[in-house]
Computed example of a mutant assay.
Amino acid sequence: MVQCLGTIRPSPSLSYFATYKRQLSFRSSPITGPANGFSPFRRIFNAYLQSNSATTGAGSQSPSEPSEVIFIGTGTSEGIPRVSCLTHPLKTCEVCSKAAEPGNKNRRLNTSILVRYPRPSGSCNVLIDAGKFFYHSALKWFPSYGIRTIDAVIITHSHADAIGGLDDLRDWTNNVQPHIPIYVAQRDFEVMKKTHYYLVDTSFVLAGAAVSELQFNIIHEDPFSVQGLQFTPLPVWHGRGYRSLGFRFGNVCYISDVSDIPEETYPLLKNCELLILDALRPDRSTATHFGLPRALEEVRKIQPKRTLFTGMMHLMDHEKVSDYLMKLMETEGLDVQLSYDGLRVPVAF
């Protein structure tokens, strides 16, 4: 269910998840915790298995206007290049030095994607996370790809690299559209009441001041619909005791911030064709993020058709890690790659 400013709206049918036989196509170039903590998902998955038909409607695929996922950012909270690396008097950071070059794929801002899909009234743009570098990402990619409106923002968790850009949405609500719906879990909304109190309760705003006009919708552990496309939350751990959400839409599964996947989430990842997964560093995991070795273990377990890693820090050299991942295609048949800021991946819903 989705709770909107104190009102309850029933969530759409879970029949959307009954049939996963549609194909995704891709283009590789951007320019052309305790398991019982997630017990509600047993009910969701059972309903998912019992469904026999797929949802059609405003989010349906149009041959003339394909759906796509656009990587607005693929880096850590601090961004790449690091200022501290570029100003170090004695040590040169190879990745950050490369990232300082225009157009280099090691340049990464806060992790975020935009899901773009057709509807009768035109393209729908759903943003997942608006971090503290959101303005800079939007400045780069929105004009380049003809993105004007933001039809909704879905929040994975309430860290600064996921919600720090909510204030920047004022440009849209002041000049493009009257408001933006925000879909957020209750626990993260409670954080927003403190970090963005003036956006949650606009009575604090002085007369004549312009702030983002946001409509906060509380999401629960059930699928919910955004402009005709259904999203299923994928609960994961992002450090001990801290829950973050991934999301499944169609056959795309997006998990950006994760240190462990509870057993009850795996059934929701079945028949995933495109997995977008956290992979912070090349050597090991941390208390809050998968490293590349663990991320690859999860890929082997989930068995998606294709995987794109995201959320990389400055130890992940795009060219070097990509060369290593290409060898896994030859040795294991694993289709795994690094994403990068500005990458566009056509998908079908």
Rank of each mutant, 00 (worst) to 15 (best):
V236T: 14
I147M: 08
D151A: 08
L280K: 15
Y242P: 00
H159W: 07
L275N: 09
M192R: 05
G164I: 05
H289L: 01
F216L: 06
A162R: 08
A209P: 01
V211Q: 11
V211C: 13
R187F: 09
T173L: 05
I182W: 12
Q177N: 06
P178Y: 05
W237L: 01
T173W: 01
Q186S: 01
P262G: 07
S285D: 03
G239A: 09
V176N: 06
F216R: 04
H159K: 03
D201N: 08
A209E: 13
Y198C: 04
H179P: 00
R284H: 13
V176Q: 10
Y183S: 08
I261F: 00
A279G: 07
W172M: 05
G164A: 06
Q230G: 06
P178H: 08
Y198K: 15
T286N: 04
D222F: 07
N271S: 10
G241C: 03
L166Q: 09
Y254S: 02
P181I: 06
V258A: 15
W172C: 04
F216W: 11
R281M: 07
A160Y: 09
T265V: 13
L199P: 05
I218M: 09
L166D: 06
Q215V: 14
I163P: 02
L166N: 06
D171Q: 11
Q177I: 10
T149Q: 12
L269A: 10
G165N: 07
V226I: 11
G165E: 09
A210L: 12
A160C: 11
A287S: 13
R284F: 12
H238G: 04
D167L: 10
Y197H: 12
L269Y: 15
L166P: 01
E263K: 13
